[in-house]
Design a protein around this nucleic acid. Structure first.
Lengths: 154, 154
DNA sequence: TTCCTAAATGATACACTATCTCATATGTCA
DNA sequence: TGACATATGAGATAGTGTATCATTTAGGAA
């Protein structure tokens, strides 16, 4: 697991470097720090959380740079954006993650993750027919989790 | 169609009034204005768009009130929140809308809507087993639309 | 290695969405 | 109508995310 982990990170790093080279961009200090922090992150995280983390750890990187690198990583396909209806941008890294979806409790805002199923592909033909190039998808369930139901006495 | 439309709006209004009564809240001026504007809105809209619209039309309602009433409507089930990965809150009304999903172009940010399919229900048993009470769900595809592919010369 | 240039960065200010506070206005019920 | 709780507006404020621009740095050329 740990070995696989390391290997996956190396692959992601290679992917990032390939992207940077191809785009004529540099392998800078800031990009290495942020890449590292992203790889250490578990589950999903917001841009602000990551930026705050970097500042608290006194890493040599500023908030604007964290944001900039996150968008690099997004374009490079190292992280993906997950869409939840609040005002923060959520990301999660692709590495070591099986495709999965999220269910979110509208009371406590906690997430449950569940694996992707191939049934989702029923939507592909419709979109492809319109010339839409699908890069990914995400299912977002919302409702009330067991704990919050208990609290409400439902 | 127009008749059905009116009927649907009346039903939504009744739903809203029931919610307000039950919650011991009042049928106020601001709530009526915002309800009306929401019903006039097509497709999905952001809170800020609606607020701006009200201000521009010089309706007697302030921005904080628009936000407050939107959350009333959310709780009443008159509108639902759609989750996209930008920093604005998106809503759409439930009235006259068949369940549908969204595909969004990552370049131009435009949406394609497509109808809900019962295959989505494969996820229900898993969530219900955990005691999660499902209130709704949304599928969000992302990719590049035909126009933007053409522009990029892909 | 050193120099040169374009890219990256940080400090700062700023834009924008959304929310909070609190004094005032208004709806509801007796 | 009077009393009181709820709703509202004006304005301040919080928080996320961006733009600007002077300075620093990566990385290739000499």
């Amino acid at each position: 697991m740990s070995k696989v982990n390391t290997q996956m990170i190396d692959e992601e790093r290679a992917k990032f470097l390939r992207y940077l080279t191809k785009a004529g961009r540099r392998v800078s200090h800031g990009r290495e720090i942020v890449f590292d922090q992203v790889m250490r992150a578990h589950g999903h995280f917001t841009a602000e959380e990551l930026a705050r983390g970097c500042l608290e750890k006194k890493l040599k990187v500023s908030r604007p740079t964290v944001y900039r690198v996150l968008y690099d990583l997004l374009e490079a396909g190292v992280i993906r954006e997950t869409a939840f209806g609040d005002k923060h941008r959520h990301f999660e890294h692709v590495y070591d993650e099986k495709p999965h979806h999220h269910a979110q409790c509208i009371r406590c805002h906690r997430f449950i993750e569940f694996p992707d199923r191939k049934e989702d592909e029923v939507y592909h033909p419709y979109l492809e027919k319109q010339g839409f190039k699908i890069l990914g998808h995400e299912m977002h369930f919302y409702g009330v989790c067991r704990k919050c139901q208990d609290k409400e006495g439902l």
